[in-house]
Amino acid sequence: MAHLLFICSKNQWRSPTAEGLFKNQQLHQARSAGTSDKARIKVSQKLLDWADEVFVMERRHRQLLQQRFALHKPVTVLDIEDDYQFNDPELIALLQAALQEYLQ
């Protein structure tokens, strides 16, 4: 089972929506976190070490991770701006398109 970590800023809308796509999936386990001090769940070295693959919503999230943590794996930028609410159908469609190889 692969561990997928999704990261946005405050861990309120984008990354929890991505995590939810994998809720009942047996091939992958997903978690989410945020880079902000105000994040619901803050990204940590422990979470990064847990993950087999790390996905961030914006390039700046990858930059923050590179500055703050020891990254020993690639980080995929999904290029999804902070324009969506939690479980917004358009956000779900963007995530499904970007993550289709993992959602099979």
Rank of each mutant, 00 (worst) to 15 (best):
K23E: 10
P16Q: 04
H3F: 03
H72W: 02
E81C: 04
R59K: 15
L95D: 05
S15I: 01
I80D: 06
E81H: 06
V56M: 02
S44P: 05
F55H: 11
V77D: 15
H3L: 04
P74V: 07
F6T: 09
F55L: 03
E81K: 09
R60S: 08
A33Q: 08
H72V: 02
Q26S: 14
D52I: 06
S15K: 11
E19D: 10
L99D: 07
L91F: 03
A70F: 07
H28W: 13
D82K: 04
P16H: 01
D37F: 08
R68C: 00
Y102H: 14
Q63V: 12
L4I: 02
S9N: 12
R60V: 14
I80R: 03
R14W: 07
F22W: 09
D49F: 11
D52G: 09
K38G: 01
D79F: 13
A97Y: 13
Y102R: 09
R14C: 08
S9V: 04
D37N: 12
F69I: 08
D88W: 05
Q29P: 00
A30K: 04
A18Y: 02
R62V: 06
N87K: 14
Q29D: 08
N11Q: 10
D49V: 12
A2K: 15
E101L: 12
H61P: 03
R68H: 14
H72S: 12
E101G: 04
A30W: 10
L94F: 02
E81I: 09
Y102L: 11
F69Q: 03
H3G: 08
K38I: 00
D88T: 07
W13I: 05
E19F: 05
L94T: 11
F69G: 05
G34I: 02
S32N: 14
F55R: 04
A33Y: 04
K38F: 13
A93R: 14
S32C: 14
H72I: 10
Q85W: 05
R14S: 05
L78D: 07
H28F: 15
P74W: 00
P16Y: 05
R60F: 15
F86I: 07
E90L: 15
E101K: 13
D79W: 03
L78E: 06
Q12C: 04
H28G: 11
A93Y: 01
L65N: 13
A39K: 04
T17M: 03
E19T: 09
